[in-house]
Amino acid sequence: MRLRVLPFLLSAALLMADENPFEAPPELQAFARQHTMARHGVPAKVSALLKAFFAPPEEGGLGIIYDNAYTRTPKEAWRDRKANCLTLTALYVVACKSIDLEARYGEPLRISRWRRVGSTVRFERHVVAVVPAGSLGQELVADFLPEVRRDTQLIAPMEPKRVLALFHSNRAVELLAESRPEDALASAHRSIQVDPAMGVGWNILGVVQRAQGLDAEAEASFRKALAVDPRDGAPCGNMENLLRAQGRVEEAQTYRDRGLEIRKKDPFFNAFLAEEALGEGQLDEAERRIKQAIRLLPREPEFYWVQARVALARGRTKDAIKALEKARKWAQPEMQAQYDSKLTLLRNIKPE
């Protein structure tokens, strides 16, 4: 597939205060009806709709490509044919509602993600779309990367205002990375206005405030983040850094200890640190961290993929094969073929 290069689309836009970021594109309802009208039953309709999102334009689809450069609105995703997880979920929810299918947001309880944006390490909650399937208690989960499936993991309902607040906090981080601190501050404040009970929003507000030299305001925001969500370790690290820079070493150590206690129990944070260490060539640290992640969550295939890469970096092909075999074992059926191809390549490597 050939991609058009549109550099200006990679710049996060600042929304007006009264603008609804999740407003549906005008063409969306007709598109959704076109791809679902011949389908009978909720499962068939939502499956057809989801496939149409990713089918190439020559087959009548949108040809959407996953792109985490910045968090688009559904209208921007329609225009660019690019979107990240949150945007895809929002676009899918409004598409379902446009054809009178009930759809809501949800958050898988065992999944979290850490990502570096510029100099900021960001904790990202995973948002999915949930559609009742018609049978009592049966639901279909759309969790981009693209598929609709019944999922056995626990999914907590997520209010639309929280998803909207996450959108604004994402934008704040992206604008800060683009050296647009005033726009970032406006987006961070908007997140808090939408959902003042979301710790992530307060933490991002503190990060933006500190970047502007507003240390007192940043400290207050980090404390508020911890007050509304004591289990989030990200504000602890930010508080530690701020206090240490001010010479308040004992207070800083308190927050460092608190943050480490929280994060050591998060398998995804350990996996993130393993990938960071692997990228920096710190193989001992990478191996230690990914082992800890696997101890905490032994059925997560992505962890074994990281473990395989660490083993390969050490020249231990047999250990890499064992890790990939475990990744395949715990992967969703539709993902196992990807691991099969990797295993074939490794098994064909001849020892030196």
Rank of each mutant, 00 (worst) to 15 (best):
E107S: 14
R223W: 09
V5I: 15
V173Q: 02
P25E: 12
I294F: 01
A311N: 09
E276W: 08
F269V: 03
G247W: 07
V173M: 08
G60N: 04
M198F: 11
A69N: 15
A227G: 00
S169P: 00
E139F: 07
P298Y: 09
R116E: 11
L297Q: 12
K342G: 00
A133M: 00
R104D: 15
P26F: 10
V121C: 04
G60D: 09
D257H: 13
V121S: 10
L214M: 13
A323L: 00
R122G: 03
G41K: 03
R314M: 05
D195Q: 10
I290L: 04
Q336N: 04
G237C: 07
A337D: 03
A83L: 04
A38S: 15
L242W: 02
Y92C: 10
A216R: 14
V306R: 11
M335T: 11
G279Y: 11
V310H: 02
P7D: 05
E178Q: 15
V5C: 04
P230M: 02
D257K: 14
H168M: 05
Q138C: 01
A197P: 02
A271D: 08
L324D: 03
A220P: 08
Q153S: 14
F167A: 01
L273V: 10
R289F: 12
F303H: 01
A331I: 08
D100M: 09
A337L: 12
R104H: 11
M335R: 13
T317P: 02
V207G: 03
V141F: 02
F123Y: 14
A252G: 14
E217L: 12
C236I: 01
E27I: 11
R33H: 11
G247P: 10
R289D: 06
T73Q: 06
T344A: 11
A24P: 12
G41T: 09
S169N: 14
K329M: 13
K326H: 13
K326L: 15
L91G: 06
A90R: 04
D100A: 11
L15I: 05
I64W: 06
I155L: 00
L343C: 05
A12I: 06
A293W: 03
A95I: 07
A252N: 06
H189K: 10
S135A: 15
G137V: 05
N270C: 12
F22G: 01
E219M: 13
H126E: 08
R116K: 11
R149S: 13
G134Q: 08
V93L: 14
A252H: 05
D319R: 02
A216Y: 00
K264C: 00
R113S: 13
V141L: 03
E139I: 05
